[in-house]
Each structure stands twice: as C-alpha cells, then as structure tokens.
Design a protein around this nucleic acid. Sequence first.
RNA 1: CGCGGGGUGGAGCAGUCCGGUAGCUCGUCGGGCUCAUAACCCGAAGGUCGCAAGUCCAAAUCUUGCCCCCGCAACCA
Length: 679
Amino acid sequence: MEKRTFYITTPIYYPSDKLHIGHSYTTVAADAISRYKRLKGYDVMFLTGTDEHGQKIQRKAEARGITPKQYVDEIVSGIKELWKTMKISNDRFIRTTDDYHEAAVQKIFKKLYDNGDIYKSEYEGWYCTPCESFWTKTQLVDGKCPDCGREVELTKEESYFFRLSKYQDRLIKHIEENPDFIQPVSRRNEMLNNFLRPGLEDLCVSRTTFNWGVPVTFDEKHVVYVWIDALSNYITALGFMSENNSDYRKYWPADVHLVGKEIVRFHTIIWPAMLMALGEPLPKQVFGHGWLLLEGGKMSKSKGNVVDPVVLIDKYGVDAVRYFLLREVPFGSDGVFSNEALIQRINSDLANDLGNLVSRTVAMIDKYFGGVLPRQRTEGEFDSELKAMFAELPQKVEELMDKYQFSAALSEIWKAISRTNKYIDETMPWALAKSEENKPRLAAVIYNLAESLRIVSILIQPFMTETPDKIRHQLGISGSEALDWESAKRWGSYPEGVSVNKGEVIFPRIDIKKEMEELEKLNPAARTEQVPDSNAEAHGNKAAKENKDVSGSGNRAPQESKAASSDPTSKAELITIDDFAKLDLRVAKVLEAEKIEGSDKLLKLKLEMGGETRQVVSGIAKHYSPDSLVGKSVILVANLKPVKLKGIESQGMILAASNDDSLVIATLDSEIGTGAKVK
RNA sequence: CGCGGGGUGGAGCAGUCCGGUAGCUCGUCGGGCUCAUAACCCGAAGGUCGCAAGUCCAAAUCUUGCCCCCGCAACCA
C-alpha cells in the first residue's frame, strides 16, 4: 500500500532584510506538524523558501552597488543557516530565482494569457518620479507621494491583468462548501464579508517600472509581478510545468498552507483563482495563524527585548525556544513574546517539571539499584491512575495535533509530567528504600517513572529535537529502541536490564533577575516594538507599507552568528554640511495649543518666532496635553513647505524624539529668545 | 456610524458557538517531603466574569444599549 502523503508549506519569505522571531514562529509550527506527520507514518513534503524578486530588493541592491542576485544570495544563505540552527526539517527550499521556477512561471503566465485569463490593459495611477513608484488614489497622502511627500502625476502604465473577478462566484461557492478551507473560521467570514461579497477587481500581474523579476516571454519589457511569481512556488517546487512533474502528481493538492493572518487573503482568493484558471485542484486548507507581538507598554524598558532567535538559541538552546513558541500562544490567536515569559516557561515547565523529573528518576535508579532496575517488581497503590493517564495521552495529543493545537497538546503532555511528579510523593520511594523487603515495590515505582518519561520523550518529538534523545540517553534507552510513535501507546516498553547514565542537567534553571539584566546589556536600545507577523514580507506585502523590523540590526550583539548579519539598510545615508544648511531651524515659543477635532494625534500650535507667529500642526497629541505645551520653547523647522493637515495649514514642524513607546519634544537647556538659529 | 481583536482573582490566559457548581499557569501566604535542578507535593487567600437594561427557574455565556483598551486604516511636515 502506498504511504499517505502530506504536503505542507510556509510562506516564502521576502529577503529584503533578515528574518526575526516571527518568521521563526511560522516555520517552527510547520516543522512541528511535519515531524508529527512523519512520526505518524506519512510521506511528508515540507516546503519553505524565499520570494526574491521585486522593486524593493532591486533598490536595496542598487543602494549597495551590488546586483540583486548578490544581495539576495547573501540574505538567503543567512536564512538557510537560521533554519539549520532551529532544526527545521524542510524537505525542500525554493527560491523564486531558481531557474526551474522562473521557467515554470513563464509557462504559467503564457498559459493564462492564451486562455484569456490574462489580458493587456492599462494601470492608472499616480507616479512619483523620484521614487519610481505607482500609487493608487487612496494611497496618496494629501495628494502627494506617501513615501517622499513630493508631487505625483497621473500616469498610465501598460500592464497585464488577471481576470480575478471572473472567479468570484466560484470562490464564494468553494469557501461555503468547504468549511475547512479557511482556518480559523473567523478568517473565513472576514474573507467572505470584506472581500468576496463586495466584489473582486481584476489584478495587475505585470510591471514595467522595474526589471528584477521573471520576464514575460512574449512581451519582454514586462516582468511578472509578485502574485503569479510568488504564489505559484507551491506548485513549481513540485515540478509543475516541468519535464518531471511526478512530485506534483504525488503531493498536490497541498494539505495545508500555513500563513500569517495578514496574507490569508492572497492565499484564499488570488491563489485559488489562479489554480482555477489553470484547471488545477485547490489546496485543502489555508491556516492563518496569529501574530507574535512584542510586549507593549512602559514595562519593556526595564526588560530588554532581544528577539533575534539566534541570540535566544545561543543562550537557552533550540528546544527551549521551540517549546516556548509552540506552547505560549494558542495557534491562531495573537500572543505576546517577552524574555521574561520565555525564561519563566523554561524554568517552570522545562527545568522544574520535566528536567527535574528526569534528574530525580535517574538519580534514584542509580542510588537505589546501582544504575539497573531489577526485573522483580510489585505493583501497588497509585499505579493504575498513573497508567490510565498515560494510556489516554497519545490519543489526546493526536487529536489536538490534527487540529494544529500545539499549545493544548503540550499542555496535555505536561499534565502527565505533573502527575508523574505527584506519583513520587504518593509512593515515597525514599521510604521504600529503607528496607530490603520493599525493593520489588520500589523497583516498580521507579520503573513507572522511567516508563512515563520514555513515553514523554516520544510524544515531544514533534516539538523538540534534542531533548528526546537526551532523556532516552539518560534512561539508558539506546538507538531506536522503543522510539516510534506507536510505542508510546504501549505501557511497559521501557527495556529491561538497561543501565542509566546520570548526566548533565537537561534544562538548567535560569536566574531570572540576572538574566534580564544581561539581556538588557545585550540590547541597550531595547524598546518595545511590534513584531510584524512572521510573514510580513511574504507574498505581495512588498507592496505594503514600510516594514517594521523587530530584530533590526541595533538589537544584535556583536558576537552573534552571521545569520544575515549584514544589514545594508541600517546606516543612514551621509549628508554634507551643505545639505544640513538647507534646514532653517529656529527657536520658537508655544503661545497656544489646542486639540484638533476629529483627530487623536494632532494638535494645533501657535508659535512665536522672532516676532513672527506661525501655526503648526503637530502629531503629538497622544503625548502632550495642549496646556502642558504653552510657554515651552521648542525647535521649529522654519523653512518647511506648508501643508494642510485635516484642513488646517501647518507652517513648519517642531522637533521631537520618539521611539515606538514614547515621544519627547526637543526643548532648550536655558532661555535664549525666540528666533535664534539652531545648528 | 471605517475594519478587526479584546475587557474573567496581583500578572497572563481558558471558558462564551451548544446558558446550569468560574478553571488553568505564574505569583503571594501556610504546610509537607528530602529522591531531585532552593526543585517536587498538599492547602489557603484573592474574582458582584467592563457597565446598564432585558430574556429565562437560571446569564461570564443569549439580546440591546453604553464605556474603555489594543492593532490596522486615516490625519503623524
């Protein structure tokens, strides 16, 4: 009989910057599912990769004076390194710059064109020449370029379009008839109500304004824009449209695409429509998980927020980090990452509960029996309850894993660990050890402990990669003995006559206070930020706003490994003194300040500057009350071109320092009189 | 009336779909034990489940209205 297959994917990540803990979150989750399915006997195909084309990368490469390919090569090797460090067991890694992928994309594009699903038209938009960017009307800010604030002009760009609208009804039908297609359900409703039912517009699928992409074969000035290039990776990786498509026939349709919640839309609307147009089956499920947020609020300053996965792995080990990611947040909801929470998890779950249980069990076998349990054992009170719990455990874990409820699955396993710790108190082995006649009973008690741990070591295999072996080694279970998933269902498989190896503590306790101080040192610029979810940069999000990179280079300790250690964007461009001289900075005094109706961020200020009054609109309402500003001396950018904000003219801008938490306006050390030049 | 998420003991969450003893983890306090990583086990304190009205024998859970917080979007010059 042929093995059942299981095909799972992560998004392909956009290598414009290095990855952060959020990307690791998605990938570790996919890895846990993959490992679980393999243990269950599936023939698994686990795919991850990178989405390497697009304007943003082209620009970044230009800025560094290297080719886009050189640029992405560097970052991609860092990403591969990271996955290796995190023990990600992907079977394949696709890069959209791989030649087989590019060839397949060209064929797909051509096929869709030949079928009439792609047609040539014009893309109307506002063009910002310095930025070389198109913007839609809604993206414009005050009718100007949202990036640089300069004037834009209405332009038409020749472009190819995909007939997305044609598939609208079929998509709705599919989603309604397949309740599992979009998970969790809340996302399903969102898609139907917000996008599908209001109606779809055709999608622009080519660009002429940049050339770092897959060329359209029959119209060389166009490159394929993100959608067809990126989304199709899920099938091109399997050889779709290539000479050898046996993997495609074997694994497609995918069992699950794991994605962050912000790109659910692309995967449940655009991607299925593309597949419909190609006449190929749709993926069975798209699972949109939540975001891993960083701790908010003022607390963070005293805590430090190192969120580079490599730092954490170096300090606490890969299993601790993997455990935390999968345990802390219920998959599907948003969760919070903090160093404190991580350390607490490590201490209480890993060190105190599991690590200590291994430690005391092995120590007792060593101390009471010289390292080898005797065969003669007597069952007794409390045994049946423990056994009953472990008898149910594998089944429970399976049910939860089938729903991708990692957190709950781990929670069940830890309940059993806890129960085992309690069993020691109930049976009091140290009391039994006092008399020779109780030895058979003592042996049974400790055997049950070892057996519990054996089962635990099997069940945690999807989540942790080193710990299972460490536990088995200490218990004296060698090689693949009693290691397979099914054996977790057979109580009594702990081998006879093996001798234990008292070894190192598996998870040392961490001194939380000391550790927080150390992390703080590692990360002097610690501040609260929001981690974009794991895929902030995947699939088409290139087009989205700026990326807020959590683990920006400033957070990285100097001795860190090179997982994408180069961050070409971090250094501000150098300017000359002449550039600086263009700014006319002046001291000004706040005469009046008031809130602007209908805005929660803006204040209207009246300033006095060397006899002249200026009206300035400033986005500081969340940090300053109007009253507190009156009378303050501030620094004004006096020669800024006036603009209207909320219909109110702003004639300049006042300087303020800010990070994500707070904002402080720049004032002066002592009085000097308004109008004084600042330089 | 822009979209979405949320308000449950000190902290973080579950429970809300399918009304019926308010549960878990951490922390605090007290006790037990000594095999173990100052760990483990037991117990206790602590919540009018954001507010109000309604339905019902019964509401954290259903209905309606309101308040507050957090993302996103929009104004952040």
